[in-house]
């Protein structure tokens, strides 16, 4: 009888333990910001008729493209992105498109996209003039605040819900220590 009770107790314990495990797994599955922005659902790309794009990427690309305009019109931020406003020709053929793609790739990966890769420099090296000759000056806290403000403006222009904009802001905040180097 005692042996039977012991086995039953062990089975109950094991059952309870595995049940707890399952509960934990379900609780750990937090939806990524990329999923909240539309995730991998395929939609038609408005800039490339006939081709499909992940809705999450489309949303982020729209925010990035709007943000680029805000940056270019900001007298404090635009010096960091001067080549954007250069005349086309003389080797400058697609700075705008390259910046849009690279920033979109970065945001996709940072928000949890699985089908894209960011192949650029890490944030610390990208913003260190000693590592990246394209970065002629170190950025300050104020510059970073201006950049976050530009992203928020870009997201607002694209009707991104406030709670998601806040999540984007929190995500950007994690990069501050790497980007701000003065």
């Amino acid at each position: 009888m005692t042996k039977f009770k012991l086995i039953a107790l062990l089975m109950l314990f094991a059952l309870g333990f595995s049940a707890c495990d399952n509960d934990d797994d379900d609780g750990m599955q937090v939806e990524s910001l990329y999923s909240k922005l539309g995730g991998t659902t395929m939609v038609e790309d408005p800039t490339d008729p006939g081709n499909m794009i992940e809705q999450g990427r489309l949303g982020l690309r729209s925010v990035v493209d709007s943000t680029i305009f805000v940056i270019a019109a900001d007298p404090d931020l635009s010096p960091f992105f001067a080549p954007l406003l250069m005349e086309l020709g003389n080797g400058n053929t697609n700075n705008l498109a390259v910046l849009s793609k690279n920033l979109t790739d970065f945001f996709c990966v940072a928000t949890g996209a699985e089908n894209f890769a960011y192949n650029g420099l890490n944030m610390r090296d990208a913003h260190d003039p000693a590592q990246n000759p394209r970065m002629a000056m170190k950025s300050s806290d104020q510059d970073f605040d201006n950049f976050v403000g530009a992203v928020v403006t870009g997201a607002t222009q694209n009707n991104v819900p406030t709670e998601l904009i806040q999540e984007v802001g929190e995500l950007l905040e994690t990069l501050r220590s790497d980007v701000v180097q003065q």
Binding site: P79, F80, F81, A82, P83, L84, L85, M86, E87, G91, N92, T93, N94, N95, V98, L99, N102, L103, G120, L121, A126, H127, N132, R134, M135, A136, M137
Partner: peptide
Amino acid sequence: HVVDAEMAGRGCPVTGNNSIFMK
């Protein structure tokens, strides 16, 4: 607003496609 050569060489950490290979 016209960007001169000095300004153009001062920034844009993400682009940088003006190398000889890109040209």
